[in-house]
Amino acid sequence: MFRITSVSAFLLVAGLSIQSAYAETPNGVLAALQSEAAKSAPGFQGFSAARGEQFFKQKHGNEWSCSSCHTDNPAATGKHAKTDKPIDPMAPSVNAERFTNPKKIDKWFKRNCNDVLDRACTPQEKGDVLSYLLNVR
């Protein structure tokens, strides 16, 4: 009995660390968003890069869109709309650091979705945008 418990504890710990290591790549983050979206929206049908691109470039009732600071080309260096401070490119193809730190991803989605939409983004929206950014070369 003891052996079974310790084996399952080991598997649990190993599984968790694999999962967290996996989440530290853009594709891992996308997979995590996918399972989140599937749980939160019963009719979830996967992410769409095209929808993500539209979301990224559109305004959502406020003064700013994502592209107000990140520009229409996520492979280019952006510029803060208010302060002009340069912002490193969002596309992982040109900036390998993007979408590798789950805490940072949460922080910026929370802040920027609030600025652009006055609310948090849904897992579907985040996944669509990330799919788009992953497609940009």
């Binding site: 922080k107 920027n112 609030n114």
Partner: peptide, 12 residues
């Protein structure tokens, strides 16, 4: 910080 000169700048 949630309304930091017009931007959300919340921190942990």
């Amino acid at each position: 910080l949630d309304k930091h000169f017009g931007s959300n700048a919340t921190l942990d």
